[in-house]
């Protein structure tokens, strides 16, 4: 350890400080969900590229996406993305205060509205893809 020459002292923090408590770990897992969001964008663009290249190319993409490591990666990614959904919607009432005719809409209703919008959009996407 080098002697501190500065005016202030900072208590050293362990590199893996976020392993020391469950709430810290959950915080870091939530932050890491963004890595899987980025993976999804890569995967989506590969899919778009395959569909754009024609039917044989799309068939090859589906084969590749069925290989075990891609499936496992996507399952892990889905779990992290769902963690993102739950934490994101859970924080929504703190990020927005909605007033209707002078009354503040209670936080549980704001969370419920987010889940409702989520279900509705998911149903629309599924219908567009699968109809």
């Amino acid at each position: 350890m080098t002697a501190s020459t500065g005016r202030s002292y900072r208590r050293p923090i362990a590199l893996f400080w976020w392993l020391s408590r469950r709430s810290y770990l959950l915080f870091v897992l939530r932050e890491l969900s963004a890595v899987f969001v980025a993976w999804f964008v890569v995967y989506l663009l590969l899919l778009v590229n395959a569909i754009g290249d024609g039917a044989p190319s799309y068939a090859r993409f589906v084969d590749w996406s069925g290989s075990s490591w891609v499936l496992v990666l996507n399952l892990i990614a889905l779990a992290f993305v769902l963690l993102h959904v739950v934490t994101w919607f859970g924080l929504a009432p703190r990020a927005m205060v909605v007033r209707l005719r002078g009354h503040r809409i209670p936080p549980p209703q704001i969370v419920a509205a987010h889940y409702l919008a989520w279900l509705l959009l998911s149903a629309i996407v599924a219908w567009v893809v699968l109809r």
């Binding site: 068939a59 069925g66 993305v81 769902l82 996407v125 893809v129 699968l130």
Partner: peptide, 30 residues
């Protein structure tokens, strides 16, 4: 945007279609 859209798209194209639960035609997707 990610919270609203990514779960369903990832489920469909990353899990359901690769596992053959659904098989939308190429022409439709295109």
């Amino acid at each position: 945007a990610a919270a609203l859209m990514v779960p369903i798209l990832l489920f469909l194209f990353g899990i359901a279609i690769p596992l053959d639960w659904f098989d939308p035609s190429y022409d439709h997707l295109s």
